[in-house]
Design a protein around this nucleic acid. Structure first.
Lengths: 141, 141
DNA sequence: TCCATAATGATAATGATTATCAATATCTGG
DNA sequence: CCAGATATTGATAATCATTATCATTATGGA
């Protein structure tokens, strides 16, 4: 938390009650992927009259300094998750039935990336989304 | 083209001038990822007063019968591409500088998918996006 | 050809996100 | 610790992509 706040300060961003509340929401929901509206609802428990614009602005800033990771899952809205520092790989298994999103670790893509580097690409990040039925939904079907 | 039209008919969709025009646009741009607005602009060369609603409706229908593949690249809008039949894997390299999207073939993920199947998942589709600088943009930077 | 009905174009409505702006809060330097 | 420069906020209007509505038109099977 303090490390993140330092990061904010170093980027000339001020620490406000709203920003702390939003940060706390994101840390309390580590591993989950929240929409701006969901963050708003949570944050209002601490800062009742925080506005949606502030939520968007803050999430955007936090994503810009890589405290959050921003993505979308073939829905209308963006989702944000706390990004473990230094990790630039996002692998998700999305259940087509219940919508549950599971994070997945793997280093399968290292070889692939190596091949692309050999071909002159400079890889910055990647994102793998697997659409599937999760074990419990599969049973139901 | 005719095979696709049969597919449309089998789904109880009528073949109209607008739909043919949109199909033609998509086939003329095989391998490219077009937004609804881009399809509209192209289609108007054949059907000058086609409306954007029709474009959306048609793209949606074509995607629903898997003639098109619909995705978004961390932009505001969806993009559509002609999907080679039976191919349910979409691997893209997106250049962070010029925005060029390159399609990539590989079977790296087969092993990974096998492991997930072993854990009870039923994989339907997957999508891999690699964000990078392409060889020519890399030189410029 | 006729006719049930699917499709169209124009446009209003929606939903997510961004921009605007006056009021307020933060933080640095004295 | 206070003042002042300025970053931030909330409310709300604006924007952008997409979807819904609806009266009119076109399609294709009988």
């Amino acid at each position: 938390m303090d490390k993140i706040k330092d990061k904010l300060k170093n980027s000339n961003y001020r620490i406000t009650g709203q920003r702390s509340a939003i940060l706390e929401v994101m840390m309390d929901n580590r591993g989950k992927h929240l929409s701006a509206e969901e963050v708003l609802a949570e944050a209002r428990k601490t800062v009742p009259n925080i506005g949606i614009a502030t939520v968007y602005r803050t999430l955007e800033k936090l994503a810009s300094i890589e405290v959050l990771y921003k993505t979308r899952f073939d829905e209308g809205c963006y989702r944000y998750e706390l990004s473990d520092e230094g990790i630039h790989q996002h692998h998700h298994i999305i259940c087509l039935e219940c919508g549950q999103i599971t994070e997945m670790e793997d280093d399968f893509l290292n070889t692939l990336e190596q091949q692309l580097e050999d071909r002159g690409y400079q890889i910055i990040d990647h994102e793998l989304k697997i659409y599937a039925y999760c074990p419990s939904c599969r049973k139901k079907v």
